[in-house]
Simulated scan of single mutants.
Amino acid sequence: MKHTRSRATGRTTLAQVAALAGVSQITASRALRSIASVDPQLAARVHDAAKALEYVPNPAARALASARSQSILVLIPALSNQLFIETLEAVQGILRPRGFEVLIGNYHYCQEEEEELIRNYLSFQPRGILLTGFNRSEAATQLLAKSGVPCVYMMELRQEHGIVCVGFSQEEAGAKVADHLLSRGRRKLAFVGAQLDARVLQRRDGYQQAIATAGFAPALEIMTPEPSSVELGVDLFNRILMEHPEIDGIFFCNDDLAFGASFEALRKGVKIPAQISVVGFNDLPGASQMVPRLTSVRTPRASIGEQAASSLLRLLDGTGQDTVTVDLGFELVVRESS
């Protein structure tokens, strides 16, 4: 049997897929969107037919037909950051089985770029939006508020009416690191930060507050808006060695910087932790293989993605609350470097 394509576009149509599978177009559409109510045997026939006919769904046509988009927008500040890759994978794992397509907006830690992405993507009428943190332009905030699109915020916490958020306290994590270093007898402390997004500054604030509460002098701050990297960690560590040789404990705002410092310490013969204790953040892959093994704050990256996506689905299903704060916590993983 010959299956012709649409004359207008040359694309295989949903009707042709349904005909080959021997089901209605409604059933074929539901099967291709992985709706759970479709009989598994029928769903398998539909997927086999779609594969045989090289069918590619048309999301624009689907949205026009239903007056509802099947897309979820996820806005993140950096695709180069392992932290957000793990979160995105978890988000997709929750949303795709429900038939949603994930639109990813990468705004490179730039509020203007995020605002433009929000403005452009809202024209696609997304069903929901997952956002990273709360620090964005006033115009972007107003766009979101006026759109009426359900939003869930990731990575940070805020107790506020109408806010659904999933994350952990960045301030408490910073304070935990300070308490740990002080408990190790470190008194000449430093905080090294790069990229300087709101979450980095929150960690810094928690770190400094805990030091002040303990009655000690504020930590030295080495801060740069440059993108975080292992190479930058080398440079900033060398700066501390040259300009502030008295420092005996360093909290790096993320593991990339701490990795660079650890490599440079090995090259220069600086003994960690005998001379300087080092703590990183996020407990990225490789932290436990460093020499010495790196103490770091383990963050629930995948769990944040899963819980945020699930919270958004509950909002869309009408079964979730419009004010929810989910605190997933963190863990200070103490290893040899401190």
Rank of each mutant, 00 (worst) to 15 (best):
P300R: 00
L53M: 13
D205S: 05
L220N: 03
R203S: 05
G174I: 08
Q159A: 15
S80A: 14
L122D: 04
I272S: 08
R186T: 08
T213I: 10
I26A: 15
K268S: 04
A139I: 08
E54D: 07
S24T: 13
I250W: 03
T299S: 10
S311W: 02
V230C: 01
L79H: 12
T87I: 13
Q41F: 03
K146V: 11
M223E: 11
P97E: 07
P57V: 05
Q41L: 09
E115H: 10
T299M: 11
V326I: 14
L312S: 06
C110H: 07
L122M: 04
A309G: 03
L232D: 12
A214H: 09
A52Y: 05
T299V: 14
I72A: 09
G329Q: 09
F124A: 13
E114V: 03
I211T: 10
A175C: 01
A49N: 06
E306N: 08
L79D: 12
P40V: 07
L14S: 09
N106K: 04
F237E: 01
E336T: 10
Q92E: 15
F263I: 14
I35H: 14
S123Q: 15
R30G: 01
V56A: 06
P225K: 03
P285V: 12
G269H: 04
I35A: 09
A219K: 08
H244W: 05
A28F: 01
V291P: 04
L201A: 00
G318C: 06
L236Y: 02
V200A: 00
A274E: 15
T13D: 11
Q25C: 11
V46F: 07
F84V: 07
H47E: 04
S262E: 11
E226T: 10
Q82L: 07
D255C: 01
G280N: 04
T323E: 02
A18K: 05
F191S: 03
G22R: 06
A178C: 00
V164H: 07
Q195C: 03
S288Q: 14
I276N: 05
Y109C: 10
D255Y: 08
G22S: 03
G193P: 11
P59Y: 03
L79A: 12
E226W: 14
V334A: 13
Q321A: 15
S34N: 15
A44W: 13
E89M: 10
S337Q: 03
L232V: 11
G329M: 05
A302K: 15
T87P: 07
L266Y: 02
R314A: 01
R98F: 09
T323A: 13
E264Q: 14
A44S: 05
T13E: 10
N106W: 01
Q159L: 09
F100G: 07
V279S: 08
D48T: 13
L313H: 08
H3M: 08
I222H: 01
G329N: 07
A139R: 04
V149I: 11
R11F: 03
Q275S: 05
K146G: 00
Q170I: 09
A258C: 04
P150H: 07
H244K: 11
L236T: 14
T224G: 02
V333C: 09
L157T: 00
K146N: 09
P40K: 08
L42F: 13
N106L: 06
G286T: 02
L157Q: 05
Q41V: 14
T27F: 00
E172C: 02
S296A: 13
L157M: 06
L83K: 01
Q170F: 04
A214M: 04
Q41E: 15
Q41G: 02
A198F: 07
